[in-house]
Design a protein around this nucleic acid. Structure first.
Length: 260
DNA sequence: ATGGTAGAACATCTA
């Protein structure tokens, strides 16, 4: 990236790229981000729409599977040193992809949902986050300019939840999950949205059920973490609710960060 | 207490 140009980065859980491709292309055309991290593509690599994104001006790297999970990075400059699996964990689920983009290390995570506190999937979530912690520790030592984007499936604090009492100790909000996220931040990362906005009521996901979006019953679980070395470059952070208002939307909406 | 919606392997799983 040229030193004098702003860089716009975003993350979006699209809940099936097969269904949402037209919306992603529309959003790219409107917002023109330099980088977009996608989660829940639900596409085998052979079916990834490389040509559609190339036509839109984006290089794509991806790690996908049929039906579930799947992550990708779209970038205006070619991603380098691509890593398609989380080190330290023998994990068949495609939830991790990382690459060098514009002189930074960019990590895209689709964190395990965990289903319910105390379940087998919850245990997998905490083990997965522990492996992420170890990996990010090593990456920060190697490359201080680090961004971690993704669907974290954790609301960091009560102000990130529409009704903290309803969600107390539930999945996405339990103390061990929040502690795991704080452990990541303690490595030297900022929750970039909170650098610019301290108020509650800002969400990135609304359940499809029971009119969750209409009633603004949301959680802020999609995050962009930025390393302390990047702090002087942070310019703006936002959540774009517009795609959530479209016909047949993902249940998540894009989260953005602008760097100098 | 359950189910509510959406996407996918289209019968059940995942979220």
């Amino acid at each position: 990236m040229r030193d004098n140009a702003r860089m716009k980065l975003a993350t979006w859980n699209v809940n099936s790229l097969g269904v949402r491709l037209p919306q992603v292309l529309q959003w790219l055309a409107t917002e023109r981000p330099d980088l977009l991290a996608l989660q829940e593509t639900k596409l085998e690599d052979a079916r990834f729409p490389v040509a559609d994104f190339a036509a839109a001006g984006y290089h794509a790297v991806y790690s996908g599977q049929k039906t579930y999970n799947g992550v990708a990075l779209l970038a205006r400059t070619p991603p380098q040193q691509v890593l398609r699996a989380l080190p330290g964990l023998d994990d068949p689920q495609r939830r991790f992809i990382a690459a060098d983009v514009d002189g930074m290390r960019v990590v895209n995570l689709y964190v395990v949902n965990g289903q319910s506190v105390g379940s087998e999937k919850y245990d997998y979530k905490l083990r997965w986050l522990a492996a992420v912690h170890e990996h990010l520790r090593a990456e920060l030592a190697r490359q201080p300019a680090l961004l971690v984007l993704g669907d974290f499936n954790i609301a960091p604090e009560d102000r990130d939840v529409h009704d903290a009492d309803v969600w107390r100790d539930q999945i996405l909000c339990s103390a061990p999950e929040r502690a795991a996220l704080q452990n990541l931040l303690a490595l030297g990362l900022d929750d970039s949205f909170r650098v610019f906005e301290s108020a509650g009521g800002h969400y990135s996901w609304w359940d499809y059920r029971q009119g969750g979006f209409r009633r603004n019953m949301g959680l802020r679980i999609d995050l962009i973490l930025s390393s302390h070395a990047l702090r002087p470059r942070l310019r703006a952070a936002s959540i774009d609710r517009t795609p959530r208002t479209w016909e047949r939307p993902s249940d998540h909406t894009p989260v953005l960060l602008e760097l100098a």
